[in-house]
Design a protein around this nucleic acid. Structure first.
Length: 868
RNA sequence: GCGGACGUGGCGAAACCGGUAGACGCAGGAGACUUAAAAUCUCCCUCCCUAGGAGUGCGGGUUCGAGUCCCGCCGUCCGCACCA
């Protein structure tokens, strides 16, 4: 027998066997209990990285484990294959995005295969192929027919580098999430999905997601940003004439409260001018504390005034120049411009409030106008102090009920209403309710819910995406492409030598007859945001008929995904969109699943030390040995352990590591040590340790079974059963680091044990237990030991509960809570016997010096604490 | 600013419901085997003034007993950000 496990040879051999036998293909018609294990599918950027290896290894262990436990497991893989990098490559290298993407897929697929993942490759899909995106177009049309898709001209986030529109979610600190370029505001006609129709459900549904991290649920909740309050009108004392460009009804670019066409301004009966201003507040209880009204710089009132007032126009310009980054907002002073207009307080028509234009009011939240209550809002207080506006207390701060509020910290806490007429003495919640009821009764306001979430703009001015199946006709408007004409396939003959979208200048693809009237018309040349592609791929994995996106019954057999695993960077975007899409499909009756992902796990990143040369260049791990730069011989500085990134050069490419150590060592390493939700520091010595363990397993198997051993080893047998239960719970909780520790312990115990029948059985158990993690060496050993079939198909060891019971326990003996001695007792020994033995212990007798203990606490089978 | 998570040896980390802190691994040290090296095996490995004492970021508290619970600080990381 060979003394070393030849990973290179064994890996390839077993991968071939799994492939040929389609071992991991999921059977749709199986009657076994089902489990759908899914990792977020990769973007085919070129090569897999360690983050992929870690992500897919975790899912793989779970999938293999569940198969061994007798479940029918769906564990598929595909490619999130549309997107910008392919077009960038096209521009840089003159290669077609499709050619580049498909080559990357081939490379990465081969790399994944070399890691031995138990994937059902028969269901592989790539979102860039017409047999995927054609079905997506059909779904888009279904949503369109259901009224969940609409087109509107709107101010959008325009990324000048990527030359495309970004969703709000894709703008970070005013910059494009991918390009990092400063985002501009542009007006474009865009397609939107009505995610806001589901805003309430998307928040409420989070409550039922027991197996999601609280952190992610909280992030989604904050993102959706539901606020309940009162929307109401302040009447203006004199109508404001509408100047030039602002005339007519509600402004379509202004954000409105969700679910209502709430006008931000109301023309008076005569149809001329603005006579009121709508505001939204979450604190209607504080209405008697208000001292001003403030509108956003781009509010219709502000614009109307700017038409005739140059000072106002100048102030609006000043507001627009203000920065939007965190630091700028923090330091920016609250500025206002008194318009001279006065608003009438709805609860006291003799009370008039000044209307300001203010730089801290946002047009795209609520109604773009607020009323200020300085005593109970810090921002309002800063503003009031600056412009010398009244500061009136309406919620008592402890025992302070004085009407005039002094100090510079607003009181936002609980308290009883004061100085508020009919609200006096109520608590905040009662007062809110009372004011809303009154507003609704008197018709000047309405209880409303406002969301931070906006509708999802899905139009992208790019080539490499799903074509939006719409044709624009001058006579008929936007006409859906008839379903029998799907898929609308991207034209191959495109070039990327000029910036912009090649579809827009394609002569034959773009110009088509109108499906409705037959006249000359143009295809929509925008493509869908790639987040649409990833919003339903998990459904297509579960069911992939040719003629439709999925079969409802087929999909419902597998869905929801039992365990979804991926990076926390998708906590909002992808996961929110997929939750929305699932609800939208339910809404139109295509799928009856409440939530797409029953369980979610967000894994940590793979990190590595960083190195810098003497002259400050970043160095890669291969450039460095024993603290010196190999090329120059100079000493290097070791920097922080950080996420692997090309810019810091601290990337370790998995492929050469697999070449050198084999798939099992890599898999074992990424499962070891660090808890999976935390970052994993990659290290050369760590992978060597993992490789040593694989070899150690192999030696153990080789040394076993030469001659049939006889006899019992009850302790070892018990350890096997205990380890088995432990690992089951570790894997179910995705705590692979703990499972690894247990396996090391079992391995050591077997190595130390004398030959016996139990030891032989223990080796067999160990093999089964490690097989989800290191499947190649496990298969090789399984076959070498003469077992029939694959270990991948073998059953998980059965635990005998009787074997989990210990008959002896070690009892700690403490004096005043400090450990002084230990005693071994049969399990369940009577309290007084244990107490007597503890008090009789030599060490305890010496410590007590003859004094009687004041108290003795006995915890059965655990400890004795003597209080001296 | 708001919200959240986390702080345990040289390092990654364990510790069920408040009950023997540091399992397991990495690095390091000593020894065995070997002509030698590698591999492998055995032992040591929190700190200190070592019959003992101290110790889970710091300071208090509850308890027979606190890494774990409570209060107050300090620090690190993550998310959101003028959200009315």
């Amino acid at each position: 027998m060979a003394s070393r496990f030849n990973a290179l040879k064994a890996d390839a051999a077993w991968q071939k066997v799994w492939d040929e036998r389609k071992t991991f293909a999921a059977d749709d018609s199986s009657t076994k209990p089902r489990s759908y294990v899914l990792e977020m599918f990769p973007y085919p950027s070129g090569r897999i990285h360690m983050g992929h290896v870690r992500n897919y290894t975790m899912g793989d262990v779970l999938a293999r484990f569940r198969r061994m436990k007798g479940m029918e497991v769906l564990h598929p893989m595909g490619w999130d294959a549309f997107g910008m990098p392919a077009e960038n490559a096209a521009m840089e290298k003159g290669v077609h995005p499709g050619t580049w993407t498909r080559a990357n897929i081939a490379t990465m697929k081969a790399q994944l295969k070399r890691l031995g993942f138990a994937l059902d490759w028969t269901r592989e899909l790539a979102t860039c192929e017409p047999d995927y995106y054609g079905h997506e177009q059909a779904l888009f049309l279904d949503l369109f027919a259901a009224g969940l898709v609409y087109r509107k001209e709107s101010a959008v986030n325009w990324d000048p580098v990527d030359m495309t529109v970004l969703a709000n979610e894709q703008v970070i600190d005013g910059r494009g999430w991918r390009s990092g370029a400063l985002v501009e505001r542009r007006k474009l006609s865009q397609w939107f999905l009505k995610i806001t129709d589901f805003a309430d459900e998307l928040v409420d549904g989070l409550g039922a997601l027991e197996h999601w991290p609280d952190k992610v649920k909280l992030m989604q909740e904050n993102w959706i940003g539901r606020s309940q309050g009162l929307q109401f009108k302040f009447a203006l004392t004199a109508p404001l004439p509408l100047a030039g460009g602002v005339g007519g009804g509600p402004d379509t670019t202004a954000a409105t409260a969700i679910g209502e066409a709430s006008p931000t301004l109301t023309p008076p009966a005569g149809g001329r001018g603005i006579d009121s201003v709508d505001v939204f507040t979450t604190r209607p209880d504080t209405m008697f504390g208000s001292s001003f009204v403030a509108v956003a710089a781009d509010h219709p009132i502000a614009r109307a005034i700017a038409e005739t007032n140059p000072d106002a126009a100048a102030f609006i310009e000043l507001c627009k120049r203000g920065g939007t980054t965190a630091a700028e907002l923090d330091t920016q002073e609250k500025l206002g411009f008194d318009t001279g207009i006065r608003a009438t307080h709805p609860l006291d028509t003799t009370w008039q409030l000044p209307v300001y234009i203010a730089n801290f009011v946002l047009m795209d939240y609520g109604t773009g106008a607020v009323f200020g209550v300085p005593a109970h809002d810090q921002r309002d207080l800063d503003f009031a102090r600056k412009y010398d506006l009244p500061v009136k207390r309406v919620v008592s701060e402890g025992d302070d009920e004085a009407p005039v509020f002094v100090g510079d910290t607003a009181w936002t806490g609980a308290g009883a209403l004061v100085n508020s007429h009919f609200l006096d003495g109520m608590d905040i919640e009662d007062a809110k309710r009372t004011v809303i009821e009154r507003a609704e009764g008197e018709g000047w306001g309405k209880g409303t819910t406002v969301f931070r979430l906006r509708d999802w703009g899905v139009s992208r001015q790019r080539y490499w995406g799903t074509p939006i199946p719409i044709i624009h006709c001058d006579a008929c408007g936007a006409v859906p492409v008839p379903k029998d004409q799907l898929p609308i396939v991207l034209p191959e003959d495109v070039s990327f030598d000029i910036p912009g979208n090649p579809l827009d200048r394609h002569p034959t693809w773009k110009n088509v007859p109108c499906p409705s009237c037959g006249g000359a018309a143009r295809r929509e040349t925008d493509t869908l945001d790639t987040f649409v592609d990833s919003s339903w791929y998990f459904i297509r994995f579960a069911s992939q008929p040719d003629a439709k996106p999925f079969d409802r019954t087929g999909a419902e057999k597998w869905l929801p995904v039992n365990q979804y695993i991926g990076g926390v960077e998708h906590a909002i975007l992808h996961l929110l969109y997929a939750r929305f899409w699932t609800r939208a499909l339910k809404h139109i009756g295509m799928l009856d699943i409440a939530e797409p992902f029953a369980g979610l796990f967000t894994q940590g990143m793979v990190t590595h030390e960083t190195y810098k040369s003497a002259d400050g260049r970043w160095l890669g791990p291969d450039d460095v040995r024993d603290g010196i730069e190999i090329a120059t011989g100079d000493a290097i500085t070791v920097g922080r352990i950080e996420k692997m990134s090309k810019s810091k050069k601290n990337v370790v490419d998995p492929e050469p590591i697999v070449d050198q150590y084999g798939a099992d060592a890599v898999r074992w390493f990424v499962l070891s040590d660090s808890p999976p939700e935390r970052d994993l520091p990659w290290s050369e010595s760590g992978i060597e340790g993992a490789w040593r363990f694989v070899q150690r397993l192999w030696r153990l198997i080789e040394s076993d079974g030469a001659a049939k051993a006889e006899g019992d080893d009850i302790a070892l047998r018990k350890l096997c059963h205990r380890t088995t239960v432990g690992i089951e719970s570790d894997i179910n909780a995705l705590q692979f680091n703990k499972a690894v520790a247990r396996l090391y312990s079992l391995c050591s115990a077997i190595e130390k044990a004398a030959p016996s029948a139990d030891r032989e059985e223990a080796v067999r158990t160990l093999l089964l237990l490690v097989s989800p993690m290191v499947p190649h060496v496990a298969e090789e050993a399984w076959a070498t030991a003469g077992n029939d079939g694959l270990i991948a198909d073998a059953a998980w060891p059965i635990v005998d509960p009787a074997m989990l019971v210990d008959d002896e326990v070690t009892i700690a003996v403490q004096v005043n809570g400090k450990l002084r001695d230990t005693l071994v007792f049969p399990k369940g020994a009577p309290k007084d016997a244990v107490e007597a033995a503890a008090l009789a212990s030599e060490k305890i007798v010496r410590l007590l010096e003859g004094k009687a203990p004041r108290k003795v606490i006995v915890v059965p089978d655990r400890l004795v604490n003597i209080v001296a």
